[in-house]
Write a protein that binds this DNA or RNA. Sequence first.
DNA 1: TTCATTCGAACATCTAACGTGTTCGAGGTC
DNA 2: GACCTCGAACACGTTAGATGTTCGAATGAA
Lengths: 247, 247
Amino acid sequence: MRHEVILQRLRQGERVAVGTLAEIVGCSEMTVRRDLDVLEREGLLRRVRGAAVSTLTGEETPFAARAKQRLEVKRRIGAAVAGLLDDGETVVLDGGSTVLEVARRLVDRRLTVLPLSLHVADALRTANQVRMVLPGGDVRPGELAFVGPLTEHAFDVMRFDTAVLGACGFSARTGLSAHDLGEGAVKSAAVDASARVVVAIDSTKFGRTAFSRVGPVERVDVVVTDEAAPEEEVARLRDAGVEVRLV
Amino acid sequence: MRHEVILQRLRQGERVAVGTLAEIVGCSEMTVRRDLDVLEREGLLRRVRGAAVSTLTGEETPFAARAKQRLEVKRRIGAAVAGLLDDGETVVLDGGSTVLEVARRLVDRRLTVLPLSLHVADALRTANQVRMVLPGGDVRPGELAFVGPLTEHAFDVMRFDTAVLGACGFSARTGLSAHDLGEGAVKSAAVDASARVVVAIDSTKFGRTAFSRVGPVERVDVVVTDEAAPEEEVARLRDAGVEVRLV
DNA sequence: TTCATTCGAACATCTAACGTGTTCGAGGTC
DNA sequence: GACCTCGAACACGTTAGATGTTCGAATGAA
C-alpha cells in the first residue's frame, strides 16, 4: 500500500524528498528509506541523497510495478479466461501480469501449458496435473519473459489449441502491440501456432498502440477485459467478429 | 527437523501409524497430520487412513527431500565451485540440489548462465548481472528439470565455457550416471557442448551407479566434493587425470 | 576546512502470522 | 452400531517481521 502511494507521488514530480514522502504516507523517514531500498532493487526508482527520483520513463512500466496495479480487476479477468479453457487443452500463456493471474487459476487443472515467462512458469511449478513445457530463450531481466530465436523455434515444432495473450496496447484499428520487438515477435509466433487466440487485458490498454506490432485484430477470437472498456472500441471489435467478454 | 524424523522412520517401515509418529517426534497427532499433509504435497509420502506410507522406492529420492539433506556440505561445495568460475564465462548449471547451491553463490556475479532446472533459474531470477538463457523443454514434475528434444536442441545451437554437473551416481570406473534417461541425455549433450566439465557432488554419491549413463570420467576436468569421499575413488580419479578438490 | 544534513547500523517495541494443542462433529471402518 | 480417524474451528504461545528511535559515520555545500 505505502509503496503504491510512493510510486504514485513520484510519477507526478521529478525529485521527492524523503521527508515529504514520510509526511504523505504518515510514517517515519527511516521506514520510507527502507521502502525506497526495496523499490530501488525492483528498479522502480532511483535513490539520490535526501530524495528519490522516478525511473518510470513513460514507455514501459516494470513488471514489479504492473503486478501491483489493478490486481482485483486482473484477478477477475484471470478467472474468466481460465473458464474458457477446457481440460486437456494445450495452451500458450503469455508473460504479462494479467496473464499471470490466469495462470494462478490453473493450478488444479489438467492442461499442457507453454509459459512465456518465468513468472508464469513459477505460478505453475506446483501444479501436478499441468504438463509444463518451456520454450527456452533469453530471459529479459525484470520482465522475465522469454525472447529470441530459441523461443521462436519452439513454435516451429509445436502447435497449440489456445494462446492466451496480454498486450501493452490494443485497439480495433491497430490490433495487438507490445513494447519490446523481441516479445512482439514471440507473441506473433504464438498466434501463428495456435488455433484460438484469447486476449486478456484490463481496460486501460484500449486505444493504446505500443512500439512493436503483433498482429491484426482479425486473428483474435475472444477478448476478456473489465467493464470500463471504451464502448466504441468494444463495438468495433464486435463488428470485426471478435467475441468480447466484460467481467 | 520433525519432517526429517518422520521420513527417516518411514524409510525403515512399511506403514507407520499417526499415533506412533506423534510419540516419536513428541507432539500431538494433529501436528503430525499437518506434517503429513505438507510431506504428501511434496510427494514424499502417501497418506492412508490412520497412517502414512513411504513413496520412496529406493530409486530416486524426490528433490524436496534431497534439498534438505546435507545442506551444510552442499553449501561448501557450492562456494568452491563458484570460485572456479571466471567473470564473463558462459556456464551450464545442472538441475540437482547440489548445483542449486552453486547457483545461489552466483547472484552477484557477471556470467551467462543456462540453467537445467526451474529451481536453478529461480535462484538467479534477481541476479541482474547474470544473462540467463533457458534451454526449454519438458519440465519434470517435482524435479523441475528440463528434458526432451527441445532441451537437447539448445546444445546444438550454443557452446559453453563450463558445464557444472551434479549426478545421482559417480565412480572412477563407470563415470557419471543419472536416474532418468532424459536427464542423462541432456547432461550428455551439455558435456559435448562445453569446453570444461566440473562435477559437483557430495561424497555419498561415490561408488554408486545409476540407471542412465552420462559419460566416462575422461571428459571430467574437476570434481568438487567433501572430505568424506572414499580415498580409493579419489586416487583413481587423480590417476585418470581428474583434478579433485575436497572442501 | 567546517557545518549541516542525510544515511544506515543497532537496538527496542509492537503487531501480525504461524505453529501447536484441544475440542468436537462428521465420516469411515470393522 | 461401536469404534476410530479425520479435519475444521478456536485458543494459546511463540516468533519473525515491520516500525520507530538513537547515534555515529559519511556526504555535500559553503
